[in-house]
């Protein structure tokens, strides 16, 4: 058995290891469990695969579509049907990075080692945001390009990624959407601390408004839904056309997205700092 007492200088690298060490530690946590890689892989694989399958189905049936349907076919928005999977998995990434520590009780060890809770929170948020960005930076252009390739091979109208509308759509969905999805659900996870409740709440808040919007009264669409983060994302990306009830012009849309992002992080960080672990 090795001696327990070792001269301190051989053990202690730094008495205040700082933010870099915190990032390193949180990264070790993420990379050392299989679920991180599985969820990341699934998000990319399922979304591209699903988009490809839908594009294939469209290609196979396009000739039988009505003339109006064929004429109004939008190769930009139709190419990203796989978002169904990637968006939910972005939420899973944001939530489980937090709740896996609460459910195991390991969060106590985390804050025992790093009593400066804000540092832990910031390091986690950065890594979760980067993972979300990476997932969509691969998945979104992937879905787009695979779909266009399939459309092309069936003689369906395609669009180039350099087309202004296409570029805007792909860039916003690849780079803005993952930040709001992962970081808002990350904040919700710190507030609720339970995996199931946080995932449910995040899906309800981020994803459901888009699905339910057409069913809700105009007043709610215009005065409530319009200012929710994901609806603002849709205005930014061009998915929501100008003149639509939930449309916001670019500057207010950017502000709405930013306010939700910063606001939810600030609230979660504040609560975390004050509350018992």
């Amino acid at each position: 058995m090795a001696a327990t007492t070792v001269p301190a200088q051989h053990i202690i690298a730094s008495r205040d290891p700082g933010f870099g060490a915190q990032l390193q530690s949180e990264w070790t946590k993420l990379r050392s469990v299989r679920s991180t890689w599985i969820v990341t892989g699934l998000a990319v694989g399922l979304s591209i695969g699903f988009s490809a399958a839908v594009a294939l189905a469209m290609g196979l049936t396009f000739d039988s579509w009505g003339a109006v349907e064929q004429a109004t076919f939008d190769p930009i928005t139709n190419s990203l049907t796989g978002l169904l999977f990637s968006l939910i998995l972005l939420i899973v990434v944001g939530v489980t990075a937090v709740t896996s520590e609460y459910s195991s009780g390991m969060i106590s060890t985390t804050f025992m080692i790093s009593p400066q809770r804000a540092r832990v929170f910031a390091a986690k948020a950065i890594l979760v945001g980067v993972i979300g960005l990476l997932i969509h930076a691969i998945a979104v252009p992937g879905m787009f390009l695979v779909s266009q390739l399939i459309y092309g091979s069936y003689g369906i109208p395609t669009v180039s990624i350099t087309d202004t509308d296409a570029t805007r759509f792909v860039v916003v969905v690849a780079l803005v959407v993952p930040l709001s999805y992962t970081l808002i659900s990350f904040s919700i996870a710190f507030l609720l601390r339970g995996t199931a409740s946080a995932i449910t709440a995040s899906i309800g808040f981020m994803w459901l408004p888009f699905m339910l919007a057409p069913l809700l009264p105009a007043w709610i669409q215009q005065n409530v839904l319009r200012f929710l983060p994901d609806m603002a994302n849709d205005s930014l990306s061009g998915l929501t056309p100008p003149g639509s009830l939930t449309y916001l012009s670019q500057t207010p849309a950017i502000m709405v997205v930013a306010i939700w992002l910063v606001g939810s992080l600030a609230l979660a960080g504040f609560v975390l700092n004050r509350r018992d672990v």
């Binding site: 202690i12 730094s14 290891p17 060490a21 530690s25 070790t28 946590k29 790093s114 832990v120």
Partner: peptide
């Protein structure tokens, strides 16, 4: 190993 590694990293331990 990783359970101890993340702790060492956060705690400024070699």
């Amino acid at each position: 190993y990783y359970h101890l590694l993340w702790q060492a990293q956060a705690g400024g331990i070699h």
